[in-house]
Design a protein around this nucleic acid. Structure first.
Lengths: 132, 132
DNA sequence: AAGTAGTTTAGAACGATTTTAAAGTAAAAA
DNA sequence: TTTTTACTTTAAAATCGTTCTAAACTACTT
């Protein structure tokens, strides 16, 4: 399926701007990035786009499940092109994130989900720090 | 150990402002809060404090391990008085956090920590959403 | 071809947090 | 004790990521 079809299937109009972003992000390679990182990539690809459009796009893509947003208390939002359930190592000093595939973690026992709620995804974060 | 001793032990000068905050936070009750929540509590207790001091204090307390900061991609930093390793349910709609005690989760298998790094704490986040 | 609903944009606005620099205070030294 | 020193607090300004505004634009429908 090409990117235009992917956008349509997600219920998004395939505008010029969304196609530029889709061409960068939806290439099957897993990566973590910020809005600013993406703007730099867009610029490097010979295009340009308002930062407001980039934020709009990322929000739409995230809400449609085309990308994910990582849970992290950094000051800048970090997005992830890997939309499968998976986990992360986080170096709190540098903010660097490293993927952990889902099958590398085995959650033997999970608590009961609170009454009236549904499980909407489990994320394991292993904080790491450089050895001294 | 009283709060003045706790601050000294943590390497922090027990100033008037830090004592006010310690008296609110270090009472053994687990809670999640933002800088603004804390300022409201300070005001309710008949005291007042510059927001800059509150941020300074929270950063120091966090760096000393007197409190923790929760990993969450909310726009506002959330702190936690429960400094033991534990986990959270997160309602992404409302931002509500619910504690999960460490023994309610059983991590049967963990990935190898990357070369040159040390494990610095594991956090499990279970995202939940309201049933419709 | 015309209409309409959704999209993009620059720039302003916003909200959380940090910085600045001056005044204040706790602890150490004399 | 007094003095000195280093650390802390503060209000206000600055910063930074993100969202809003409203006007121009564009994809899709009729």
């Amino acid at each position: 399926m090409n990117n235009k079809e992917k956008l349509r299937k997600a219920g998004l109009r395939p505008t010029k701007q969304r196609m530029i972003i889709a061409d960068i992000l939806l290439d099957g390679i897993n990566r973590h990035f910020t809005a600013e990182n993406l703007q730099n990539e867009i610029n490097s690809s010979g295009n340009s786009m308002s930062i407001a459009t980039i934020y709009n796009c990322l929000k739409k893509f995230r809400n449609c499940g085309l990308i994910k947003q990582v849970e992290s208390s950094k000051d800048t939002a970090i997005f992830d092109t890997n939309i499968n359930q998976h986990h992360h190592f986080l170096d709190e000093e540098t903010g660097e994130l490293i993927d952990i595939e889902n099958d590398e973690v085995n959650l033997h026992k999970l608590p009961k989900i609170p009454q009236g709620y549904l499980n909407n995804g489990v994320e394991v974060l292993i904080k790491i720090k450089k050895q001294v």
